[in-house]
Structures are given as structure tokens and as C-alpha cells.
Write a protein that binds this DNA or RNA. Structure first.
Lengths: 110, 110
DNA sequence: TTAGGTACTTTGTCTTGCAAGGTATTTAAA
DNA sequence: TTTAAATACCTTGCAAGACAAAGTACCTAA
């Protein structure tokens, strides 16, 4: 029911995942499994059941688009790429993130 | 259904609220309305319907305790105060928060 | 033709945030 | 004296998101 340390991290991840996805795709297009790897490499543990629905949501919101591409090493891959609308939202997220970081700083310092 | 800018902020706030509460109460005891004011002052908009259940949850987890105190200016106040267990969890949250900040930095820089 | 790897998807549960509405106490005006 | 306003705290019902677990599909090589 509660695994303190891991649960704490899990809760905090909420809300920044979308920001991470857009940031990753702002650099270059990528397919789900590779995004998953980059997130894990950056210490942001996510699982498939979280990532796939999230990508679909962002695509439905017009923040992402995708195209299928054959792979030489298995089934075809769905390459996602950020849209203009996605880039605009990413800008808002950059601001929002900075605000939250500052808010925490304010609360801790006072 | 969607108010982009505000929605973005709202999503990101998720998961850091508990951290904010513990941080505030780590400095000195306080009652709900005053916590609400401090959060608003720090730009972390929260509403009563979010804060009260959260305080109750943290109290039930043994992270907080409280005592009633009469007020000269209205109804009695429920003063919350952080417990040893709460301080321990706050330590874990400090680490988790720093990790997430670093993760975002890593993703953005690469 | 079967096993293993790669990749994408769905379902059900739990937690959290929030809008909206409710209860209770005190003080001061009408 | 009753009414209104301010201060506090609490509850209900809904929506969104994270995750575990299970499922589907494609490809390659033994």
C-alpha cells in the first residue's frame, strides 16, 4: 500500500512527464521505446503503461504527430515528432517549470 | 475543457504539494488557512478542497500531528505540526525533488 | 515451426486535485 | 435581536493520470 521512498518519487513525477516527453521530442523525433530508454537513462523511471497512453493523449491534443517507419530489427516503429502547437506548449511548460522550481525555493528559504 | 497556460501549471503542481506542506510545517506549526495563504503568496495556488484532505491524509500517515487552539478572531484553529516521521519523509522528498530537477536539466541539455 | 526479441496497446485499480457545497463560530451592524 | 460578514474547517462526487499486468503483432534465427 505504501513504499515510502519510491512512492514519494512516483508522486513527484506526476505532472512533469508530459514536459519531459515534449522536451525530448523537441530535440529530435523518436519512437516510444527509445523515449523510454532516454527517460530511464535520465533517471526518470516510467513504464510502458504510462508512456503509451500519454503519447496518444498528446497526439490527440495536436502536440505531436507521428509516422510509421519500418525497422530492420523487428516490427515497424511509430516515430513521434513535435508540432508547432507542441512547441508552443513546451514554451509554456518551460515557464511553468521555472515558476515551480522558484516556488519551492521560496518556501524552503523563508 | 482546457485552459492551456493554467492547466499546464496545474498538472505540474501535482505531486509537489505534499512536499510544500511538509516544508512549511518544518519551519513552524500552522493552521490550514495560514498554510493556504503562504502557498498562495509563494505562487502555488491551492484550494481548500485540496488542502484539507491532504492534511488529513498526512496526519493519518503519521507525518503530522495537530492541536486545537482558540482564536481571538473567530472559530478555533487546528494547528498542525510535523512529526519525526514527517521530518524523515521530508528528507526523502528533498532528495527526490533534487533528482527530478537534475533529470529535467539532463533532458534539456542533451 | 517455434522461441525470443522488439514494439505497440488495452484494461482495471488507485491516488490525487478540484469544484461546489456544507457546518460551525465569532463579531458587528441594522 | 436578528442578520450579515468574516473566519475556519470538512465532505462529496467527478476527472485525470500513473501503473501493473496482460495482450497483440511483427520479425529473425535456430
Amino acid at each position: 500500500m505504501e513504499n515510502s521512498a519510491e512512492n514519494v518519487r512516483s508522486q513527484m513525477r506526476k505532472g512533469v512527464l508530459e514536459y519531459c516527453i515534449l522536451s525530448i521530442l523537441d530535440k529530435k523525433e523518436a519512437y516510444a521505446s527509445s523515449i523510454l530508454e532516454e527517460l530511464k537513462a535520465a533517471n526518470m523511471i516510467v513504464v510502458e503503461g504510462t508512456l503509451y497512453p500519454l503519447l496518444i493523449r498528446q497526439k490527440n491534443q495536436g502536440l505531436l504527430s507521428y509516422r510509421w517507419e519500418e525497422s530492420t530489427q523487428g516490427p515497424p516503429r511509430k516515430y513521434y515528432c513535435i508540432t508547432d502547437k507542441g512547441r508552443q506548449q513546451l514554451g509554456e511548460m518551460d515557464t511553468a517549470w521555472q515558476e515551480i522550481v522558484d516556488t519551492i525555493k521560496t518556501i524552503k528559504e523563508k
